[in-house]
Design a binder for these strands. Structure first.
Ligand SMILES: [Mn+2]
Ligand SMILES: [Mn+2]
Ligand SMILES: [Zn+2]
Ligand SMILES: [Zn+2]
Lengths: 169, 169
DNA sequence: CTTGATAATGATTTTCAGTTTCATTATAAT
DNA sequence: ATTATAATGAAACTGAAAATCATTATCAAG
């Protein structure tokens, strides 16, 4: 039963994951077999309107203020949908819950990596060094793809340590 | 109460985390306020004797075969101890459970990164490209440390995608 | 070897993020 | 309007991980 569901989803995602379909970052569900409903729009709005790394419950609470009828279950389901479709990244920063971030912020920062403070759980986005990283990263990805026959879709780079605030005490 | 415990632990770890104490990778707990007990030794043995990425329960089951009295609770506690002390890395590869790996395998591979197949959850270790990565990584870490006053202790680099086996079907 | 202080253990209970279930509702095509 | 199907949400459930707490192991002093 679980397998069945997974297969169904992966087939559904094909249209836009293989580069043929349009990415829908602000209202383009249709044509992919998905419906852009009020709950989904609301969840996307929350994600697009924050610079934080929100958990499912964080998102639910923010959505709830505007649309009290929308349930936590729908938030979880929509997030899974967005993650599987590549629109949203799901992160584990070491506290007990997953955190979500728009993979391509429409009017903001784009791809970036993270510094994670293991003391206070603060997260720092950084982009500054990505330009220098980019070449090697692409080179590495090409090398790995060839060597292991592995089709890379995305990567996660996180530096763990102690932040400024936690050091100065 | 929770804060109290955390403070206690961090103080306990200081001796060897700050470079002054010896790393105990096969029987060096003492002198750090910790005791190398039978359960802890058994858990370390399991970690040292595998190339897989075991979950807490995996470790428990393997330990259980030799020492049926050792409980899952102790496995969790010991793993947390080892992670906090830097001897073991804790990973989230996207299935529901944490996976653990000796950070410095005594007689085997050392630091490496991961390819994670999002279809079948297979994990591929790779070291081949780390040499080329090392320079930039250190450079990046230095830059980040300076810019954000962030003391980096370790990093996690994971490439996500589809593995050979899952592609060929 | 005792003894006493404390660290470690493990059975049990509890927590809580995330998932399933299922009856109801919204959506879109005809 | 009719129909088929996708989406929703309240409620029940799951399971990895953490907390409790009485018991046991470890070690240093005497
Ligand atoms: Mn971020
Ligand atoms: Mn590994
Ligand atoms: Zn911090
Ligand atoms: Zn695979």
């Amino acid at each position: 039963m679980k397998l069945k569901i997974i297969i169904k989803k992966e087939e559904s995602f094909m249209p836009w994951r293989d580069g043929t379909g349009p990415p829908w970052l602000e209202g383009k569900f249709k044509g992919c077999g998905f419906r852009l409903t009020v709950p989904r729009q609301a969840i996307l709005d929350v994600l697009a309107g924050t610079a934080e790394h929100l958990s499912a419950e964080d998102i639910y609470l923010k959505v709830h203020k505007v649309h009290p009828a929308i349930g936590l279950t729908t938030v979880y389901r929509t997030l899974e949908l967005l993650v599987q479709s590549g629109m949203v990244f799901k992160f584990d920063f070491g506290d007990g819950r997953a955190r979500y971030e728009l993979s391509e912020n429409p009017k903001g920062i784009g791809h970036h990596h993270h510094l994670v403070c293991t003391r206070c759980r603060r997260i720092i986005d950084y982009q500054d060094f990505i330009d220098e990283e980019k070449d090697l990263l692409q080179k590495t990805e090409r090398g790995l793809s060839k060597k292991y026959d592995f089709h890379i879709t995305h990567h996660v780079i996180q530096f763990y340590g102690v932040c400024r605030e936690c050091l100065g005490c």
